[in-house]
Write a protein that binds this DNA or RNA. Structure first.
Length: 586
RNA sequence: GCGCCCGUAGCUCAACGGAUAGAGCACCAGCCUUCUAAGCUGGCGGUUACAGGUUCGAUUCCUGUCGGGCGCGCCA
């Protein structure tokens, strides 16, 4: 419909240009929007306002000319000029009826678009360190990323979903060492566990597995393990130096193969847990990309070398620095540490260079907002190695604060008192979690009301939308009980009977759905879809409350059943994109 | 101190630079013999934090101030 009006306007503009009423230079961007108020018709364009300057004419006068130049259309009953120069289109109500046929014919494909056809994009999200279970912060990134990816897919893009496994680096060494130390405790060794080690219960479990499968194979005397290791913090030492020395000791005593076994056990157990958690949450990936693999293939070395060769890196204080300030970063960043180890940043440059090399037109990263300071340096690095930093779009997801009984749920990663994603899913269910997480745009701080998410009432937007879907199924069950059947072909012949304001509103909402998908996909903003579904549910519920569908008049009945059947289809399609179930009864 | 994000109705949040800034909740007044009351109708509620600027037009863009969150490591 929108396109049809845009075509009419384009025709008018071309006509005005041909007759010299409009200059031929300058582009005319034609924007047609659904109106907010019925007084302004069904669709409106601000074309005369945007072209006024170019045409050196008053907007309203230009609008007159445009309207005169418009070709006739049987779908448009009236065109008005209003306000400062808006052109309002009033549609023939029958123009909307066809959307019912379109939806029923397209089925689950209704809403899919083609803007992304032939374009490959990558969405990397969650990518939490495999050092422990996912918490509710990761949950938002998971729901958000999965939905953005689904939307892009629906908009026709070729989408690659990826999880970057941070399986290299110091944090993972700390994890591996923590596992080993817990294992040593189970072997009977006595010592103080390092304050900087990972203390979660799951570390004990992994240590126990190690012990069960290997007995004393990796056992070394505590005295040997802690010999000459700098003191830990409680004993007046430095906790960082303490844990680093323990990592080195683990590597020496266990040897490369033994260390790798312990390390990989920790990594794999936790990664499997994360994978399972996400899968249960309806979040799946095309690829799990290993940082360690990237390092082991020499990609990180090569990218550092490139920066060195091109003069973007320099040595200082025994380390190798990237001059990111040349590209607007606030300070230069270390690539290779004094101890010869490359930083996470160096690996990440290699990773992002690799992503772009893989030929994605656009690469989307979804990060927690606490990583925002990291964006300029990654973009700087991409620019320095000759890539276009604009191909990388980083979405920063703000934290979600949980509320229960009107009180903030206290969380602290430091003390280990964080709420896990799994706990949240258990408490409110996958559907509510997925829906609530994408109800706000990512840069918005979110208040997550657990009580609301759990409540089975219309105040809960998830139930409200799901119930609309279930209610339509219920109507069809009632139909059967009354001994009637739905004749879609008959309904199709009598769609003209749908003239009630509630029906026209519902039709307009259904017709707008594909555009919602496109807008949400291109803007990477899933909340548009969540809101649109709530509004669609609202239109349906009010319609339901005002009119009876199962009337004696078979023509009207079938037409209405076609309409609500189409509504059900759109609700199902939309919920599917959000990763929320569409129940048939509640 | 510097940087990024946010500031819209009592609360939670919307609004490609467009018309009279919208929803839901809460509150107030009505409604239930109905295909599910898990509902409906109406009402109340705003100097879009503040001050400038850009223009036909600013919640939206720019500058500054104030307030909240986050970050500022040779961790990841």
């Amino acid at each position: 419909m929108k396109q049809h009006l845009a075509d009419l306007l384009a025709h008018a503009v071309a006509g005005l240009r041909a007759t010299g009423h409009l200059p031929t230079d300058g582009e005319a961007r034609i924007e047609v929007e659904p109106t907010k108020s019925k007084e302004h018709g069904d669709f409106a364009t601000n074309l005369a306002l945007t072209l006024a300057k170019l045409a050196r004419a008053k907007p309203r006068e230009l609008a007159e000319k445009i309207v005169k130049a418009l070709p006739a259309s049987d779908r448009v009953v009236k065109v008005e000029i209003a306000g400062p120069g808006f052109i309002n289109f009033f549609l023939n109500p029958t123009a909307y009826h066809d959307v019912v046929n379109v939806i029923l014919a397209a089925g689950e494909k209704y809403g899919r678009g083609t803007v992304g056809a032939g374009r490959r994009v990558q969405v990397e999200f969650v990518s939490a360190n495999p050092t422990g279970p996912l918490h509710v912060g990761h949950g938002r990134g998971a729901a958000y990323g999965a939905t953005v990816a689904n939307l892009l897919d629906a908009a026709g893009f070729n989408v690659h979903r990826e999880y970057y496994i941070n399986d290299a680096g110091r944090q993972m060494d700390i994890l591996g060492t923590s596992v080993w130390l817990r294992y040593l405790e189970l072997c009977g060794e006595k010592f103080d566990f390092p304050v900087n080690g990972y203390k979660g219960d799951y570390i004990y479990d992994i240590g126990a597995t190690l012990h069960r499968e290997n007995g004393d194979k990796y056992r070394h005397a505590a005295a040997k393990v802690f010999e000459n290791v700098p003191a830990d913090e409680p004993k007046g030492g430095d906790k960082e130096k303490h844990i680093d020395a323990l990592i080195e000791r683990a590597k020496t005593l266990l040897g490369p193969a033994g260390y790798r076994t312990v390390f990989d056990l920790g990594l794999n157990v936790i990664l499997d847990d994360i994978r399972q958690d996400l899968e249960e949450f309806g979040v799946t990936y095309d690829e799990w990309y290993s940082e360690r693999a990237l390092v082991e293939t020499g990609a990180a070395d090569r990218v550092v070398e490139r920066l060195k060769q091109s003069g973007h890196a320099y040595e200082k204080d025994g380390a190798l620095w990237f001059r990111s300030t040349d590209y607007g970063d606030e300070k230069d960043r270390v690539l290779v540490r004094e101890n010869g180890q490359k930083t996470y940043f160096a690996h990440d440059i290699a990773y992002h260079a690799n992503k772009l090399e893989r030929g994605f037109e656009c690469v989307i990263d979804i990060w927690g907002a606490d990583h925002h300071g990291y964006v300029p340096r990654v973009k700087a690095a991409l620019a320095a190695i000759g890539d276009d930093p604009n191909r990388l779009d980083v979405l920063l997801v703000q934290f979600a604060v949980l509320y229960r009984g009107g009180e903030k749920v206290q969380m602290s990663t430091r003390s280990g008192e964080f709420v896990t994603l799994r706990e949240l899913r258990r408490e409110v269910g996958n559907d509510a979690a997925r829906f609530f997480y994408v109800l706000r745009k990512c840069e918005q701080h979110m208040d997550f009301d657990l009580d609301l998410a759990k409540s089975q009432s219309n105040d809960n937007p998830v139930y409200y939308v799901q119930y609309a879907h279930a209610r339509i199924h219920s109507v069809f069950r009632q139909l059967k009980e009354k001994g009637w059947t739905h004749d879609p072909a008959n309904g199709r012949r009598h769609l003209l009977r749908l003239t009630e304001p509630h029906e026209l509103a519902l039709l307009a909402r259904l017709a707008a759905y594909p555009e919602v998908i496109e807008t949400a996909a291109l803007a990477h903003e899933p909340h548009h879809l969540a809101h649109a579904l709530r509004e669609l549910a609202y239109d349906f519920h009010t319609y339901y409350n005002t009119h009876t569908f199962l009337v004696e008049d078979a023509a009207l009945r079938d037409a209405r059943l076609n309409l609500i059947s189409a509504t059900r289809q759109v609700l199902r399609n939309g919920l599917r994109l959000l990763g929320v179930s569409a129940p048939e009864s509640m």
